[in-house]
Each structure stands twice: as structure tokens, then as C-alpha cells.
Design a protein around this nucleic acid. Structure first.
Lengths: 349, 349
DNA sequence: ATCGGACACCAAAGCGCTTTGGGCTGCGCC
DNA sequence: GGCGCAGCCCAAAGCGCTTTGGTGTCCGAT
């Protein structure tokens, strides 16, 4: 069963391909009566224009590319990617675009962008997990491939389109909140700090401490890939410290799961013996919700960021010459059960 | 900067498009010397054949489609999808295929398959989260679109290609294990039971109980979408029961996170007061690993299933006439800290 | 010397669409 | 009556590739 095509449809209708094409694409040169007749026939015969042929003829592919690098780092990204992709992908589908995902070893990522360009398979791409210095942006600039970045790449010279959470402010606020509760020894369990967001989070944390004259202690800072196991291990190390922290700031709710486990295994109570504040991406399967959520958190929906970036990317594609837009989202601080006043008698010290 | 194309490349080389095309595609009608010269030039000029043009000419699109339905159910699927997609997508990329993902409201899923077919945008599709009776398979059969199913659709009449974990056996084994430990009141916190895998899991659980003469108690069975919050709520209900369970079987590690939280909030100890056994999909960000993993689990890697299904789908595309293959994977039972002997004095009862 | 057949290459058609550059009516107007 | 002008519609070119059906050359065999 071959799919219906333009030629066949126009033959059935007794019209030229030109007219049928124009009728379906809303050109004014065709009478309303004919247009209706054509539309109806297209529907009846289940006709949709062949994507490839249309792309060839128009030069537009109506697809957006994204590459998910396979690497140790993918572990942290997967669940976050997934929710981001839902926000992004839904908005994209609504506009009639398709989303192609390349899952390749990290070192092949540049190659994929090159091939996207050379084979003309996408109209634009979305860049995930930007690093502080990220060569991908320069490459995309060079290739002339429209792109938007989820996050920022601090050291990239040229302007580019991005949407980011104000990580610095968020972590400074969370740190302030903990200090307001009387905590002075606050640990940080961060994501990998070559990633821009983690870099900024540490910065916000460090600045807030410095502003109150508290020295940052390298022993209180961990930077690990954001898995439950890593959160657990990092927290165990922190608890074994002679000067163990009374509060912990964690870069993700997934880390926090492991952190909580370590706290409980040590016979301590989260929110009483050790306070925990996290950044919450509002993952669909791990909601930190309710009147009094489990975790005190700086919250910003990654799904919303996805939808926002989608709109931005399509704009860039339509008007590549305009200066690239950007958007800094503020995270809200929500108070949960995982934080409380600093213990008055710090144990062991 | 326009991308290099065949015409231009052949002009540069002083050869016909035919010869260049044949040289690159490995046809024998071209001398080795010429082939080398062409290959080298293609590399040097960053030439890759335009995907759409190639697709138009060959009728093969070299892309696989998947649709991720946006619905309440997506919440449970996201993180699992993500890891599956890594396994599938990596294998796919290795074969030179692309993966397009449509993220649409559930009720549009059929429409997407129709449009995949009508617009000729994919060579095949992968079907996620099959239901006990799943109309999608009949639709795909009718459309003549090659597909493979991750899981099974019990009531689908015709043969189809699938890879599934032996859910029934896995849950029967886990139930047996709990009974061997002396548990008699074993609850089930399952996924939504219109989904085939959840249906089979309940069946395995029920059969194992029945085999030892234990009646299944509807009050001890929950079927919810697999989020942390739902696991927590279901466990709270179970703990409030006059006859509360001494052990719980959970369909996912994500549910188990909420289950553990409810147990601890009730002042109980998991593995001592309440045993928990789960099914573990080996999610990258939530590993249940180590000598003595946190959770006793039936384990089967969803990533591996993805890679397996990829190979299967490509085979179906190449040889649509062969009888559809299938593969039933056995989950291994691993013992963790979350299970222990049934308390000798059951509290409250 | 002629022929058959590898061997190496090529021109042109065709994949299914959009779009350019018309053509043909029928109308109102001078 | 002729002209201009909408209003509708069409034939054909072109997007970048593969593939069919060749052509021309060179060589060994007859």
C-alpha cells in the first residue's frame, strides 16, 4: 500500500499539482470552493505531504536536533533531560516540528553537529549542559547552525541565546537561609564543576558565606555526578569529618535522596541534626510538593525552561539576524521539612 | 556558506555525479584509485549526502520514530524512557539511523503513527508501555509500519516483535522469597494495571500467594503511577491498615523511595519491621548496587532491553516478511538490606 | 584484423514536493 | 470594440540524491 501523494491526489481531483499544493498551503490564488474541495479530498485519502520531498523543495527541514552525550556525565543528565525534553518536545510538536536525538559518545558530539550541518538534517539545535568554557558554541557559530543553550557558558565570547536559572542567586539565598537558621558549618554537595551551572552554584554559596565572614572549607565541598549513590558517598564522608557540617546544600534532589539515606543510616534526623537544602528541578517522578515539602529547596521547573527554549529557538531560526535573546529565571525558595535551626550543641565539636 | 553537495563535489573532481555517488557507496563499478580520490575529496570538503535527498531517492529514511505520550502516565515513564532511550539510541546511532521523538497528548498518538506513515518520515517505530489490550499494534499492522514492542500486549491477536522481562516469574519469585522469610501478609504496590507489565506482575504475585494457600487481599494491593509521592501515599495507607503488611512488593525503585520514606516516618525500620522487595530497572541515576544493595530486587536492565530492541527493529525493517522475533528476559533476584525475616510478633495483630 | 567482454565512467530520469512564470476567462471601463 | 485587470489555474524547473541504461576503451581470443 503506497502512501497517497500529490500527483495522485491532483489526478483524482482533476487539478494540477500546483493548485493542490497551493490550496493546502493556504495561498490566495485559489478559490475558496476549490480549497475546500481539496482539503476534504486530502483528508479523505489520508494525504500528508512527504516530509523529505517538502524539505528538499523548501530547504526547511522542520526538525530540531539535540545530542545527548554518552559519558559518565550522562548519568546525572538522563532524568533531567527527560523532563526537559517533555517541555521542549511538546512545544515543538505543537509547532509542527520534529525532534531528533543523537545519542553518541561524548567525543563524537562535535562530529554530530558537523554532520547535522553537512547533511542538512536540522534547522537548529539545542545545547545541553554547557560547560564554563564550551567549544560547542564556537563550533555552532562557525557552522552557522541556529542554536539555543539551556544554561550558560560563562567564557563564550560572542552573544548567544540562552535560558538559565539564576543559580548564583539561588544558592546564595539558600546559603543565607541556612545561616539565618544559625548554621555556620554548611557543606556543599555540587554537580561536576566544569559544568557552568555547578560553577555558578558554588560561586553563590561561596559569596554568601564570604559576605558573613565565613571561610569556605574545601573539606566541606564535594563536586560529583548527580546520582543517589554519589550523594550518599559524599554525605558519608562529610559525616565522618571531625568537624561535621550542621547543614548541607545539594545541587539536585537525586543527590539529596542519597544524602538523606546517609543521614538516617548514621542514626541522625534530617532537619534536626543535619539540615538539607536542595535545588529542585521539579522532576515529574520526584515531586517535592505539598504544604510542607520534604526538602527545603530553590525551585525552578526544568520543563518550563524547555518550553521557553523551544519558542526561543524557533524565533532564532525565523530571524537569525536579530540579536540573540536570553532569559534569566529566578528560582523560588520554598521551605520544607529538611531544614531547621542549627543544633545548639554541635556534636563532636 | 552553502553545504557542499554532490554536483559541486563531482565538478571539483572532474567526474560525473554517478561515479562519485557510486564511489562513496561502495559500488564495484569504480576503480579503487578513483574511489580513494573521491573519498579523500569528500572528507576534505566536509561532504555528506543530504539526508532528505537521499531518502527521497532511496525510499529509505534511516530514521526510527517513537512517541512519548503526554499524560498522567508520562510521569512514571520519563526516567525509565530516558534510560531505555540511551540503550536504544546508542545502538541506533551506531547503525547510522536517527531517532525522532514525538511528544504529544496521549489521544494524538494514533494520529502520529498515521502521519509517520503518510509523510513517510520513518522506517519503523518502537512502541512503549503496551497495554493489556493495545489498539496501537493493530493500527501499526494496518499501516504496514514495521515496529517492535518494549513489553507485550497480552490480548493482541497477531504475532509481533517484542522484548520483555518475565514479569510474572520475577514477581512470583520475589513473593516466594518473602514467604520463605516467613511473611504471610505481603502487600503489592504496583504500576497502573492496564499496562501489561503491571498486569503480569500482579498475576505473578497472586499466583505465588495462591500456591501457598494465601488469599489475596484487595486492601493490600495498590496500583498507582510510579512516582515517589504515590509510593509514599500508598505505603501510608498500608501502614494505617488494622492488619498492616509485614512485607511489600513494589513495581519500581521510584515507588520504593516513597515507600521507604513512609516506613521511616512511621518510626519503623525497613528490612526489620517491614520488608520491601522491588523490581529494579537499573536506572543510571538510582543504582541499587554494592555487595549488599539497599533493596532486595528482581533486576533487569532496561538499557540492555533498549539495545536489544534496536537490533530487532532493524532486522524487521530489512526483512519484513520473516516471522517476528521475540525475547523473554529473566530478571535476577538480588538480595539487599530491605528484606529480613518476618517479625515474630506482628504488631497490632 | 575482428570480435566479445571486462572495465571505468556518464547522461538523464525519477523520488515528491514547491515555486516561477506564465495562460485563459470574464468583467468593468474608456 | 479593445484594454486592463483580477481571479484561477497550469506546465515545468529545480531541490540533491540514486539508479537505469547506456557509451567508449582496452585487451585477449579467434
Amino acid at each position: 500500500m503506497k502512501a497517497m501523494n500529490l500527483k495522485e491526489l491532483s489526478r483524482v481531483l482533476g487539478l494540477s499539482q500546483t493548485t493542490v499544493s497551493r490550496a493546502l498551503n493556504g495561498y490566495p490564488e485559489v478559490s475558496e470552493a476549490t480549497r475546500r474541495r481539496v482539503r476534504e479530498a486530502a483528508l479523505r485519502h489520508d494525504y500528508s505531504p512527504n516530509t523529505r520531498a517538502k524539505g528538499l523543495a523548501t530547504g526547511r527541514t522542520m526538525t530540531i536536533g539535540q545530542v545527548v552525550p554518552l559519558s559518565t556525565a550522562h548519568q546525572m543528565m538522563n532524568p533531567i533531560f527527560a523532563d526537559f525534553a517533555v517541555g521542549f518536545g511538546e512545544a515543538l510538536a505543537r509547532k509542527g516540528y520534529e525532534l531528533v536525538t543523537a545519542i553518541v559518545p561524548e567525543e563524537q558530539e562535535a562530529q554530530v553537529y558537523r554532520s547535522f550541518r553537512a547533511r542538512g538534517s536540522v534547522d537548529g539545535v539545542i545545547v545541553h549542559g554547557p560547560r564554563v568554557h564550551d567549544p560547542r558554541l564556537a563550533l555552532l557559530d562557525e557552522l552557522g547552525l541556529p542554536y539555543v543553550v539551556h544554561g550558560r557558558a560563562t567564557e563564550h565570547g560572542a552573544p548567544y541565546a540562552w535560558v538559565d536559572v539564576d543559580n548564583r542567586t539561588a544558592f546564595a539565598r539558600a546559603t543565607d537561609h541556612l545561616m539565618d537558621l544559625g548554621h555556620a558549618r554548611i557543606a556543599l554537595i555540587n554537580g561536576p564543576e566544569h559544568l557552568d551551572f555547578a560553577h555558578r552554584r558554588r560561586d553563590g554559596y561561596a559569596r554568601a558565606l564570604a559576605a558573613r565572614g565565613i571561610a569556605v572549607d574545601p573539606a566541606q565541598m564535594h563536586a560529583v555526578e548527580m546520582t543517589e549513590l554519589n550523594g550518599h558517598a559524599a554525605m558519608q564522608e562529610l559525616l565522618a569529618l571531625p568537624q561535621r557540617p550542621t547543614a548541607v546544600l545539594a545541587a539536585s534532589i537525586i543527590l539529596a535522596l542519597g544524602i538523606r539515606r546517609a543521614i538516617e543510616e548514621a542514626g541522625l534526623v534530617m532537619g534536626r541534626d543535619v539540615s538539607v537544602a536542595i535545588h529542585d528541578d521539579v522532576l515529574s517522578f520526584l515531586q517535592n510538593a505539598g504544604d510542607r515539602p520534604v526538602f527545603t529547596a530553590t525551585r525552578s521547573s526544568i520543563r518550563d525552561a524547555g518550553a521557553l527554549l523551544c519558542g526561543m529557538l524557533l524565533e532564532r531560526i525565523d530571524a537569525p539576524a536579530t540579536p540573540p535573546p536570553s532569559r534569566l529565571l529566578q528560582a523560588e525558595l520554598i521551605l520544607g521539612q529538611s531544614t531547621g535551626p542549627a543544633p545548639t550543641l554541635t556534636p563532636q565539636g
